[in-house]
């Protein structure tokens, strides 16, 4: 009899928790981070050996195909020399143009680097736990990058840990711009290694290989972070191949980005906004 009562209570409790998760997600996310913070010390000793093991396996693999890799690297160096030349020329030209225009660049973004402690895969979530948190200045919603591309977004901050949901997570939506055509789109995770590119205005103009950058719309992520390149899948849908290498994700940078303030209405110097009425024109002229 008491068994049934306990079972009933537990069922009600889990339904209530699920409802809370569905309705007030941020609060449950905070609970999640509290649990992560509490058990964080336990992961220090699992993440390190695991990382070492992965690295050893990768090193061994690279031993096996050292010759091919050498050839590949040679080709790549050749390629990059050309690019470096191009980059230097462009930079000089850029500097000249900037001097002409007197451009003021936005202040350099700061970042903190954290080590990936755990990562969870599976159909429900693709996220990782990083060992930097509020104490290190991480803010909720901040962008996380590896050396090259966007990894994901901070979706929960604890005192000294934070959770990053990857671009591939089903809850991940990132507003982007497709570079060659300048079209806006949204990169939507679907738990595969390559997230979908959705809401493109003219998908037929998009070519595989186009670069995908964040657009900064929505004012959560900063603009112009590299996301990846466009590919087409077997069903002819547009997907993005992330530039971030999830397979060897060890350290991530979390950017400290504050969205630019928008200017709304005239400043106090000019006075309060005038009611828009064309009949006042004569008064103004006096």
């Amino acid at each position: 009899m008491t068994r049934q009562v306990i079972l009933g209570l537990l069922i009600i409790l889990s339904v209530a928790l699920f409802a809370l998760w569905r309705i007030d997600n941020p609060r449950v996310e905070r609970l999640r981070m509290a649990v992560a913070d509490a058990v964080f010390p336990a992961f220090d000793w699992t993440s390190r050996p695991a990382a070492t093991l992965t690295r050893m396996a990768e090193d061994f693999e690279s031993y096996v195909r050292v010759y091919e890799e050498n050839q590949e690297l040679r080709r790549e160096v050749q390629d990059l020399r050309g690019w470096r030349e191009a980059a230097i020329q462009l930079e000089q030209r850029n500097a000249r143009l900037r001097a002409l225009n007197n451009v003021r660049l936005s202040p350099q973004m700061r970042f903190v680097t954290g080590e990936v402690l755990t990562d969870t895969g599976g159909p429900f979530s693709q996220s990782g736990l990083v060992n930097v948190g509020r104490r290190n200045g991480v803010q909720d919603g901040a962008a996380a990058m590896d050396g090259l591309g966007l990894v994901g977004r901070v979706s929960g901050v604890g005192e000294e840990t934070s959770r990053i949901i990857y671009l591939t997570d089903i809850n991940s939506r990132v507003p982007v711009v497709l570079q060659r055509t300048g079209q806006r789109a949204v990169v939507t995770g679907d738990n595969t290694g390559m997230p979908l590119v959705q809401f493109v205005e003219a998908p037929e103009r998009v070519r595989p290989g186009d670069r995908v950058m964040t657009s900064g719309d929505g004012r959560v992520l900063p603009p112009d972070l590299l996301v990846g390149v466009v590919v087409r899948d077997s069903e002819n849908r547009l997907r993005v191949r992330p530039a971030a290498e999830y397979a060897r994700l060890e350290f991530v940078r979390i950017l400290n980005f504050r969205p630019p303030q928008s200017v709304e209405g005239p400043g106090g110097l000019i006075g309060a906004a005038l009611p828009a009425s064309p009949t006042e024109e004569g008064v103004v002229n006096e």
Binding site: A42, T46, S47, A50, A51, L53, T54, D119, G193, Y246
Partner: peptide, 13 residues
């Protein structure tokens, strides 16, 4: 702890 180990299968599908 084993399932949470960062062995990086997370995004490989």
């Amino acid at each position: 702890a084993v399932s949470l180990m960062p062995l990086r299968p997370a995004t490989s599908g």
